[in-house]
Design a protein around this nucleic acid. Structure first.
Lengths: 214, 214
DNA sequence: CGGCATCCTCTTTGATACTG
DNA sequence: CAGTATCAAAGAGGATGCCG
């Protein structure tokens, strides 16, 4: 990217990560950890393959991304965020917060990847009763199931399934998201097609606050 | 901007403000308040005028910027951030934080605008002794003087001069910035050409923490 | 396969000039 | 002052090819 040529921290930050796709590449690496080239491409539908290669090289030169040859059995290159690269987390979090209101509009033609929801889940959900025994919620929306678990006051999210979840929430992404983050009442979401099975307390336990705008 | 087409809050946020120049326009409006077209162009050296016009229109359509005809005596169009536009503040703040380490490199050919420093000043400086009488520091670097004032625990920054400042700090931008934010010791900065007059306590009173990397 | 490089087309940007 | 018009250059998108 062409530099803005301004002695300003915001401008200099954007010189590094203001290019198209760059922050989404960071999101992928942040959410999925060390990733192969093809997995990155998969999480970034629409990116031109040469562009991904270019960006990864730029990010590597900027010291935000490291490239490591995976141990022999795997035989692949792994890309990961460096310490400095992980400092992008607050930037991603701020964008997440800003973009939150725009998630009430359903996906439409937009691609969905379930693991993208792990970020808002960990960012917006809280365990409101940390003293009580932990709860587990299985989330079924998008392309693969997720699990939410309370762990010392926080909510952890991961892809996968739970053995005996306290509740299962399933349905269209915008309904699931709205219900979890608190912009949508469970009853209303159900009327719109959300399925919720299990203990309603589990949902209330982790639900986000936001009254309007999920 | 072409949409990323992803049902992800980060991607949807970037659909709105991921375009080149867009966040810097937001920075200008945020720092300077309602601004005229030509003033914006002045704070964004290098931007093509048609591009500025395009971006302002896009931002207006997105509901982030409002355009108002200034009252008769002025006879000009004023652009300002809407409520929603002001929600970009955390995004700018996160970028500021991320870009902070990159400010140790001197401006070189980069353009400098003094009022750009009001953002890091208010973000990184604290009044460490709110109980004591307020202090005022005049900052001379870049194109125009700035004033830092302690106001109930916080530090307020504005362009202009002070009548009887407790201290005056002057010199190259990277020295002033490094000294204020705490990455550079005053003695070291002085050896490199920084001028500091007045009560050294005034500086210590507001100085930021960051040990390394200004 | 995984990790690119090349080629081509199309869109966006940057620079400059001009206008109500 | 607040833009629009024009045009060359850079960058993005898409398809395909190559190589270990």
């Amino acid at each position: 990217m062409r530099s803005y040529g301004q002695y300003c921290a915001v401008a200099r930050a954007l010189d590094l990560i203001g290019d198209r796709w760059t922050l989404l590449i960071a999101r992928e690496l942040y959410l999925r950890g060390p990733s192969r080239y093809t997995d990155l491409r998969d999480g970034l539908p629409g990116i031109a393959t040469n562009l991904l290669a270019d960006r990864l090289r730029e990010l590597e030169e900027a010291g935000l991304v490291a490239r490591e040859a995976a141990p022999p059995p795997v035989a692949a290159t792994l890309f990961s965020l460096t310490e400095r690269g992980r400092e992008l987390r607050p930037v991603l979090a701020a964008l997440l917060q800003f973009g939150k209101p725009m998630m009430v509009a359903p996906p439409g033609d937009d691609v969905v990847r379930s693991y993208w929801f792990t970020f808002p889940a960990e960012q917006f959900l809280v365990d409101h009763a940390p003293a009580e025994p932990p709860v587990t919620i299985e989330v079924r929306t998008g392309d693969q199931p997720l699990v939410l678990e309370t762990v010392d006051g926080r909510v952890r999210a991961r892809t996968g399934t739970a053995d005996e979840p306290d509740a299962v929430i399933a349905g269209d992404p915008e309904l699931v998201l709205g219900t979890l983050t608190g912009g949508l009442e469970l009853a209303e979401a159900k009327r719109r097609g959300l399925r919720y099975k299990g203990d309603p307390k589990a949902l209330r336990r982790v639900r986000g606050f936001t009254p309007a705008a999920a």
